[in-house]
Design a protein around this nucleic acid. Sequence first.
DNA 1: CTTATATAGTTTCAAAATGCAACTATCTTA
DNA 2: TAAGATAGTTGCATTTTGAAACTATATAAG
Lengths: 162, 162
Amino acid sequence: MLRRSFTYQLASIAEDAVGPAARLFESRFGLDVHELRVLRLVGDQPGVTFTTLSRQTKFERSATSRILSSLIKGGLVRREIDENDARHFRLYVTADGQALRERADPLSLELETLILSVLSLTEQAEFRRILDKLSGWLDREFMTELQARYPEMAGPAKKARS
Amino acid sequence: MLRRSFTYQLASIAEDAVGPAARLFESRFGLDVHELRVLRLVGDQPGVTFTTLSRQTKFERSATSRILSSLIKGGLVRREIDENDARHFRLYVTADGQALRERADPLSLELETLILSVLSLTEQAEFRRILDKLSGWLDREFMTELQARYPEMAGPAKKARS
DNA sequence: CTTATATAGTTTCAAAATGCAACTATCTTA
DNA sequence: TAAGATAGTTGCATTTTGAAACTATATAAG
């Protein structure tokens, strides 16, 4: 078999993994995976600020803002004006949001376990370790490195569309 | 640091990897990454049929059809009616398509090397091996397994949108 | 032979997502 | 008190989406 491009393979795995999950979360909790992603990021970083968050979501700022609005409207997230700088909002998950996460997380875990079940435990650990290493690099030095090597591509991340 | 959901991590890595690549291919070759994906899949499987292809692309059939049309219009792919069954088209990359691939592939390889450069050679090999194992499983048994466990979600893969 | 059904692939179209740019509001500096 | 800078939101034109309808060929049944 021909060796497929690594990026294609990654994107393809991500789609196979996220796609079914998306449908399940939608049908069980009426929750869009994008919303879930934001809910989790906020939950894991109480008091996180919008700009930080939107860098992590990998969505556009405007998209993140809209998702956030919908979470707030749904009572899953609340925001507080920063007392030192009223331009900032500090974001927190509400009790309802927390409750929802607590229902959603086991399903995530279940799916994750199923996906990884084809790997031995050693492989799973190794895979995780490698993914962590990769994410760290991609989040930090990689982007700088890219800009340096390919100055032709400025501007922020464009839709990858897998 | 909190352990992030594996699917989020994967999607996030894929986006970081594919996003920049998308912009580069666009600016250097005027080629959309989706088109490139299809071009490669056809190139690697001369005579492949539309339905097979669209399963591999992970796009909707209609999207695949549109991308294919654009490749054909651009003279990068050609199609022939199957002599045994006129409902099928057999797809082939043209000389122009091949030439384009030959210009694009080195860039892909370069990017891929850069992305993986944070890993040791052993890790790279291990990572690849694990990815292969995962893709195989996800393409085959996994989907069946999912349907069995979660009958509530029928229908074909929905946009994962990461 | 004629009708029914299945399969391959394309096209249409309304709804949703995208992303730039303009906008509001606050803060900082001078 | 005016001029930027920063945080976040919203408007809106464009693009993307995906389900459904459609065309065309093949196969099966009566």
